[in-house]
């Protein structure tokens, strides 16, 4: 069951969000990026933000444990995200980014070892999505990636005269309870580009991996901009004189040279070919084998912003036959 918002009430609807807490939405600065909103007029919903949604849930660098006098101590977190009971609301995320959260949930939430820091953020950040009417980029291929209508609190779908708001969570329900109800199954956008899903194991030793990886410069943009890349490094940061510091995690990339380095100096995935193949197969094969769902959500960022314009979708579609 969803709700209906009149077009003339749209601005007030956003102002309500802004007053309820910290509102974060896409803003055009040097590029389109998620940012704290001062004036709701600044919000730009056309196009997909440069950086994906994941950074609000898995920050680039974060403290896992405190180290005090040579001992590791757990972080004390406030029950609510902000002391003054203000909520953090992210508005304007696209369904590909939101599905990225479902993927992260599988490893950081519904897992044998749930991650406390991630769980805390997931529970305290409200996600309000916006449905794409047309694909924001020619590189989008989400309609072939079976996106699911899940992992958001609210999602806006623009119709001719009004907005339909899909409600998934109890928190979301409370935010829109004053609006009239309606039942509507909103359509997903149709992208021109599509990934031809297939079993890639028979092509593991194929030469086409080499063609693509030869152009790769290991700039790691693909992993930074991916809404589902989560690999991280753990390290200690300490002041030697006080023995105080932190045990931290930092987002890492499988395209980095030292990613598979072991003590003694041996690197297991030592060539770009191996690194590139590992990333692509992790996205469309390894995760699928384990969770019966592709890790790629089809946002197309890794292709659009690739330094060498490597297009793994094209390679899979055209060359692996």
């Amino acid at each position: 069951m969803g709700r209906v918002l009149k077009k003339e009430d749209y601005k007030n609807f956003l102002i309500k969000f802004k007053n309820a807490g910290e509102l974060i939405a896409p803003v055009k600065t040097d590029m389109l990026r998620f940012q704290k909103i001062e004036d709701v007029e600044d919000i730009k919903l056309e196009g997909n933000p440069f950086f994906p949604l994941k950074k609000f849930f898995l920050p680039n660098e974060e403290i896992l444990l405190k180290i005090r006098n040579g001992l590791t101590k757990e972080l004390k977190r406030k029950k609510s995200f902000f002391s003054n009971e203000k909520k953090k609301i992210i508005f304007g995320a696209k369904l590909c980014d939101i599905n990225g959260l479902s993927i992260l949930d599988k490893l950081f939430l519904d897992h044998e070892y749930p991650d406390e820091a991630y769980k805390y953020r997931r529970e305290n950040i409200i996600v309000v999505g916006v449905n794409c009417l047309t694909p924001p980029s020619q590189h989008c291929f989400c309609s072939s990636m079976d996106l699911k209508k899940e992992s958001y609190d609210l999602l806006l779908h623009e119709r001719e005269n009004d907005y339909y708001i899909d409600v998934l969570s109890e928190t979301g329900k409370k935010l829109v309870k004053y609006l009239p109800e309606e039942n509507f199954d909103y359509p997903l956008p149709e992208t021109r580009k599509k990934l031809d899903k297939k079993n890639l194991w028979p092509f593991f030793a194929d030469n086409y991996w080499e063609n693509d990886s030869e152009q790769c410069v290991s700039c790691q943009r693909c992993t930074i901009l991916c809404p589902t890349c989560f690999c991280f490094d753990m390290f200690d940061n300490i002041n030697p004189s006080t023995r105080n510091g932190n045990r931290k995690r930092k987002i890492d990339s499988c395209h980095s040279k030292d990613f598979t380095k072991v003590a003694g100096g041996h690197v297991f995935r030592d060539t770009r070919l191996k690194q590139y193949r590992h990333r692509v197969l992790h996205k469309v094969q390894f995760f699928e084998d384990k969770f019966k769902r592709s890790m790629c959500t089809g946002c197309g960022r890794c292709i659009e912003h690739c330094h060498s314009k490597i297009d793994f979708v094209k390679t899979i579609n055209e060359d692996f036959k």
């Binding site: 490893l107 950081f108 897992h111 044998e112 070892y113 991650d115 989560f230 690999c231 991280f232 490094d233 753990m234 995690r249 890492d252 499988c254 990613f259 598979t260 380095k261 072991v262 003590a263 297991f268 590992h278 197969l281 992790h282 094969q285 390894f286 995760f287 084998d289 384990k290």
Partner: peptide, 19 residues
């Protein structure tokens, strides 16, 4: 088998080999 396991909880990706 051996790799540098960093988180040891099936997340960080450093010890992943072929999924």
């Amino acid at each position: 088998l051996e790799r540098h396991m960093k988180c040891s909880t099936g997340k960080c990706g450093h010890c992943m080999v072929n999924g």
